[in-house]
């Protein structure tokens, strides 16, 4: 790892951890030199996904990896949980999808805020990976 690399891991067990994770995401984005708007996008996307891990997955972990070099900056956030999994990812990604208790999962919203998102889910392991990349101005 280089001097400009960041690695933060946050356990997701209680509601405070969602706040901690989104603040850590903002801090990482700021440290890496992302703009204020991107910091807010990342913090908000992390908030959506870590809440899912806590509420639907019964808890899990959030890992934030960041790096910066001469060409640009990148942050990758991985949120995992050991819950029952998302039965239909396509459906969960469609806007307006909500579960029985009418709480949407916020997945489509988070997807729009980041450059890249991947969801893998099966009973016992759900992993959501999000990434944001910005090139340095030439």
């Amino acid at each position: 790892m280089g001097a400009d690399d960041i690695r933060v891991a946050i356990a997701l067990r209680v509601p405070d951890d969602v706040v901690r994770a989104r603040q850590a995401g903002r801090d990482a984005a700021r440290t890496l030199g992302f703009g204020m708007a991107d910091q807010t996008r990342l913090a908000t996307a992390i908030s959506e996904i870590t809440r899912n891990a806590l509420h639907y997955g019964g808890g899990g972990a959030c890992e934030i990896l960041g790096s910066r070099d001469g060409r640009g900056r990148e942050v990758v956030v991985t949120v995992t949980d050991g819950g029952p999994g998302i039965p239909d990812i396509d459906k969960a990604m469609s806007p307006g999808f909500s579960t029985g208790n009418s709480l949407g999962m916020g997945l489509p919203g988070a997807r729009r805020l980041v450059d890249w998102m991947n969801i893998e889910s099966q009973p016992g392991l759900t992993r959501v990976v999000m990434a944001m990349r910005r090139r340095s101005p030439a």
Partner: peptide
């Protein structure tokens, strides 16, 4: 508030 996500908006 520097983060308002879908839950808070709701």
């Amino acid at each position: 508030l520097d983060v308002v996500d879908s839950y808070m908006a709701r």
